[in-house]
């Protein structure tokens, strides 16, 4: 990790005492490009807040020392408007209300889906103005509109199936990143898709032909691994 790159990254503080949950949160969030600082107690979390600034806090309600609600109130009392996402096992409405009343911005009950967690994190960051997610992704002549789900190349509309659209979106969001066929399958067709990875090759070849992708390709085959997306450098 290069230090100058870290400055642009969104910083997330995870206050959670369960080591396994902390582990997957850190790993998963880092893969999504966030910088994660894990803390296992409320006190340690508050200390971390004093030392550094964060863009978002993921806070567990059941902490060994201070109650999550109290931590939340403590943060809010110091006039910080940092987005707080609370995690808890309790499903009772009173607990939700209490969580939101104590100053949390959102609330998720365990066991939660990691995809949903990411979606909520993005929503919280957007709302607080920490990221400006554009509604369009652009790579060279290719423009992908996330709202209308339309793809154009040089202004001409290209008709893509939902799977092809999902693949292109994933590639355009993570340029240069190498995805294995397995990962592409899971990300685009869902975790419970029960088929061979060859289907990904079929979808990629369709996508390539629709995009008019000729060597040197935008979507390159990485031998024995998978695929990666290399957008055309429009300038420079």
């Amino acid at each position: 990790m290069s230090t100058d790159k870290n400055d642009n990254k969104i910083k997330i503080l995870v206050i959670e005492d369960d080591p396994v949950i902390t582990e997957f949160l850190c790993t998963g969030l880092r893969y999504e490009g966030y910088e994660v600082t894990p803390r296992t107690t409320g006190k340690a979390g508050l200390d971390a807040l004093q030392q550094a600034t964060f863009d978002l806090i993921i806070l567990d309600v059941m902490l060994p020392d201070i109650d999550g609600f109290e931590v939340c109130q403590h943060i809010r009392n110091h006039a910080s408007n940092i987005p707080i996402l609370m995690l808890t096992v309790k499903k009772a409405i009173s607990d939700r209300v209490r969580g939101l009343d104590s100053g949390a911005d959102d609330y998720m009950t365990k066991p939660f889906s990691f995809d949903e967690l990411l979606a909520r994190i993005r929503a919280l960051l957007r709302r607080s103005g920490r990221i400006h997610e554009s509604k369009r992704l652009q790579a060279g002549a290719i423009v992908l509109d996330l709202q209308t789900r339309e793809v154009t190349k040089d202004g001409k509309k290209i008709n893509l199936t939902p799977t092809e659209f999902g693949l292109l979106e994933l590639f355009m969001r993570h340029p240069h990143r190498v995805f294995t066929r397995e990962t592409l399958l899971n990300r685009v067709l869902g975790y419970d898709y029960d088929g061979g990875t060859n289907i990904i090759d079929v979808h990629i070849s369709h996508l390539r032909s629709k995009l008019g992708d000729r060597p040197p390709r935008l979507i390159r085959t990485i031998y024995a691994v998978g695929y990666a997306f290399y957008p055309e450098e429009t300038s420079t």
Partner: peptide
Amino acid sequence: AHELMTPLTGLRGSLEVLLRGAQD
């Protein structure tokens, strides 16, 4: 049920993260 939820959260989250690409 509450006690079952905590390890299940860890399991589900870890599996999701693995399937999303961490398995590589």
